[in-house]
Design a protein around this nucleic acid. Sequence first.
DNA 1: GTCAATAGTTTGTCCTGACATTAGGATCTT
DNA 2: AAGATCCTAATGTCAGGACAAACTATTGAC
Lengths: 246, 246
Amino acid sequence: MANQLNLSIDRSSPVPLYHQVVQGIEAAIHTGRLELGSRLDNEIDLAAQLNLSRPTMRKAMDELVRSGLLVRKRGVGTQVVSSQVRRPLELSSLYDDLSNNGSKPTTEVLSFSHLEADATTREALQLPAGAKVYHFTRLRKVGGKPLALMENWVRDDITHIDEALLGAQGLYGILRNGGVNFRLASQRIGAVVANDYQAPLLETPPGSALVTMERTAVDDTGRLVETGHHVYRGDSYSFEMTLVQR
Amino acid sequence: MANQLNLSIDRSSPVPLYHQVVQGIEAAIHTGRLELGSRLDNEIDLAAQLNLSRPTMRKAMDELVRSGLLVRKRGVGTQVVSSQVRRPLELSSLYDDLSNNGSKPTTEVLSFSHLEADATTREALQLPAGAKVYHFTRLRKVGGKPLALMENWVRDDITHIDEALLGAQGLYGILRNGGVNFRLASQRIGAVVANDYQAPLLETPPGSALVTMERTAVDDTGRLVETGHHVYRGDSYSFEMTLVQR
DNA sequence: GTCAATAGTTTGTCCTGACATTAGGATCTT
DNA sequence: AAGATCCTAATGTCAGGACAAACTATTGAC
């Protein structure tokens, strides 16, 4: 088995070697060149095949194990995990999700204001008294069908936001363009039934099931950038995720 | 700053050095010895303070960054992220969750059978025709209040399962005792309203909101061990998680 | 024939060392 | 005083080596 992974490593590229390996193996798995359940060569051979050191090879495989694509066992070897769909829950907005899936979402801004944060919001975003925030509610539709009703609070010292911008682009896109590097978000997912305000907007009967999500996002400087409360139509949206045991 | 983290590393312990560091820093953050938002010493100094090599120190910090406790920035340093509660979504059963939180859950086994898997189940667990599975439904209560209604299918070539066992112990506990090392699970979370079967069992009115979860779990040999469909009372349960950007 | 000891393979952990890249402050220049 | 430039500190990447631990399969003994 001279060259199991048919990868070419570009040492002059700015993308780290271990990451090139990650991408290469991911591609090999998705194209089927590496069969599900098959065994990989051992780390030392693989490293030698690609002219890499073992730590670099291992770092790449570490990432793939973490993301659930590979399974390692000491004394035995490394396998491609044989499982079906894998869509890890990523730090992305609904807009991104839908755009990537080919649908064309539209956004309707229902309300928009730039005001002093109340106590609850100040606590959620850890802001000092007197700080101002953007507050807005949006309705997201896909193919003309309403899918999500979203209420958000965003600190205003990051980038300018207005109604027109929100209608044209996802919130996370706006904030990323404003120089925000998201690092982590904590969220809570639950269920409620539609009330008389939500039901007509989402074009669903009052009393039908809605998925709720509350999320607060943190950027790479530790700032709490955004908090929001979203509701989704339960008959058209669910959260999929892959959990990996460490 | 001679010894910022007041850790003692036990080199004779079987637990890896980097993991001892992870636990130590986690403890320091939780007890408040490391303040939220404060800066850590640089990697090289920290490694020297603990008489460790830099790669070992880095590996520990890598884990903490991944889990969202630390934030690193090249050229600047490493900070404790200033965020509130963090409860990562882990690969564990509801029973574990509740037990760890001090509540004492009880389980009522509503139905139990050991039968040949139908086509849907065979596909979900990737079983050959004719394979048998355990199938059961359980009602979980906490403090006498019903919380979750769970229906599961488990392959039968792992360990023996019976009604008495299920009444006394969580499913994941039983399977772990049976030698299963869980590696990953994919799940989907959504919302429905309670139907006439679910409502009385959960002691909630028909039409109230329920959180649904479908999960399939994979062990370290790549076997699909278990699949299930759970519903939780929306007024008493939600999924909390922390997402980390890579 | 069955069970136990053993050898070999593979991943897990840890070390030392080196250089690249980036962010931010200090310094110098205009 | 304002701007551009250099310097320093910190993390990011990569190499190569050594030993430990776990699992497999073979071999050996009873």
